[in-house]
Each structure stands twice: as structure tokens, then as C-alpha cells.
Design a binder for these strands. Structure first.
Lengths: 131, 131
DNA sequence: CGGCTCTTGAGATCGTTGTATCATTCTTAC
DNA sequence: GTAAGAATGATACAACGATCTCAAGAGCCG
């Protein structure tokens, strides 16, 4: 009720496995598709339920993208940012930062954190013709 | 039909006036509220219609924020970024940039543009107690 | 194994945002 | 001023993502 005793289900293990196999932020739909290769009849509701509980356990972190998509990535990573491919729309992690960005706010704003999103063409799409 | 002859309506003028009076990106709801001070019975559908046409005329530019909100600001500004206040959630323009951000992608990504969003507390909210 | 109860799967439902409809009002040209 | 038709306002509707319901299935403990 208030504190149900959690169980280890194949579904949740499959979802964790998907994040371990793909080192980039994933959408709920992507998680569903990848995890269905491991648990055939997996449903979208189960994906949402487990994403939520994995966030509560701090095993995942939500990544809100401009446009409204909310992706998830494994928690506990060092400070980093993201790159989104204009062609395939996949999002990748970009290591490093330019600390000077926090000074962009000048004196009028008390800046506490920041997001940087790069856009362009990813290596995979550059290699191919299209998509 | 294909090219209706546009007319200058009080509503559209009011909406333009709202953006000229507030030098920051505004949500459709904010536009509605501010513009209703000028045209009392203004409806939300008219706001959406005029936002769309002002974007087509390139008088406005959409600003997609993480979380899904799409705001609008006057077009033609110099390269800049945005600050969102964690308290009042208003978004402000931040002039300047750190060009080095485009190099964060390394050699794996062909970076064509970027977004920087700063978060913290705005001057107005710092002056007040709350909200 | 047996059973308690947590979790799942399928679909219905919700909430939000933006669009379509259509009678009415307003702008513009003459 | 008048008429043609573009724009408005009120509301219904659509689209989408996410959540809820509940019977059925499965994990865990003894």
C-alpha cells in the first residue's frame, strides 16, 4: 500500500538493460521498442511505470528537450550536455562544458545551472545518404 | 482563397503591441492576457491564428523551451540565448554567447547551431520574498 | 509447492495544447 | 455608405503523451 515491497521483474530488468546497451538518452517509445526485443509482449504502460520508479530510485534522470520530448538517461554521470541530430533526431551525450556560459547572465540574473543543446548531423547520418 | 488579402485588425495590432511592450519571449497564454488589456473580448483562437501568421511574416520567431512550452519573440534579433527563472518561470533574453560551445561536439558531430538555456532566479524575484 | 500480493498488459481515460467550425463582426475598396 | 469577404469569438474537436483500471500473470517467502 504505502510501501509495497518491490519485486525484480523481467520487464524492469529488460528496461535497465536497454539503457546499459545504449549510451544515450532514450524516449519512452524507444525504450519500448528496444525492450520488446527482450520481452515480447511488453506494454507501454509498463515502460512508463518503470521509468518513473527508476527515476525515483535515482537510477535514471529525465532529460527535457526543447520541443517537449522527455528522454531518460542513466543517473550519476558527470556534468555534460547533449547533441541532437537534425536528421535522425537521436540525442547523444556530449562530454565537457564551457563554464563561462554561467557568466552570460550578467549581473541581472542569479544563474544556478544551465543546459546546452547542440544541433547538427551525427556521425551515423553523415556516413549515410539519408535518414 | 489561396492568398486572402490581409487586413489590419485591432486584435493583430494589439498582439504586436504586446511584444513591443515586453522584451522577452511570451507564451500564447501570456499574449492572451496582456492583449486582453487592449482588446477586452479577445479569444485564444485569435491569438494562435495571429501568432502563426506573424511567424509566417517573420515578424515573430518561435522559441521551444525544454518541457514543451513554445514561446514567441520578435524576429531579427542578434544571436542570443535565454534565461528562465525557476521561481516565476518567465523567460528572458540573454545577450552574447560563448562561441566555444560549438566545439563541444568534438569530431563525431557536425554542429550547425546550438541553444543555451540558463536557469536561476531573475532580478524581479530576487528583490521580492516569493514568486 | 502454495499462496499472498505486487506487477503486468490491454485498453479506456485524462489533460493539455492547438486547430476547425461557423455565425457574426469588422475592414477595406469603391 | 455599402457590399464583399477576411477576421473574430465561442466552442467543439483533434492529437498527443501520460496515467488509470482491473483481470490475469508472476515474483517471493515459507
Amino acid at each position: 500500500m504505502a510501501h509495497p515491497i518491490p519485486r525484480n521483474t523481467r520487464q524492469k530488468a529488460a528496461i535497465r538493460g536497454v539503457f546499459e546497451a545504449h549510451d544515450r538518452p532514450l524516449s519512452p517509445q524507444e525504450v519500448l521498442e528496444f525492450a520488446q526485443a527482450r520481452v515480447a509482449r511488453l506494454g507501454i504502460a509498463t515502460v512508463y511505470r518503470n521509468l518513473k520508479s527508476l527515476v525515483q530510485e535515482e537510477w535514471l534522470t529525465p532529460v527535457a528537450m526543447p520541443g517537449g520530448a522527455v528522454l531518460y538517461e542513466m543517473a550519476g554521470k558527470n556534468h555534460h550536455h547533449h547533441f541532437q541530430c537534425d536528421r535522425c533526431h537521436r540525442v547523444y551525450e556530449v562530454k565537457g562544458c564551457v563554464p563561462a556560459v554561467n557568466r552570460l547572465g550578467g549581473s541581472g540574473f542569479k544563474v544556478q545551472r544551465h543546459e546546452v543543446i547542440l544541433y547538427g548531423i551525427c556521425a551515423a547520418c553523415r556516413g549515410r545518404r539519408r535518414n
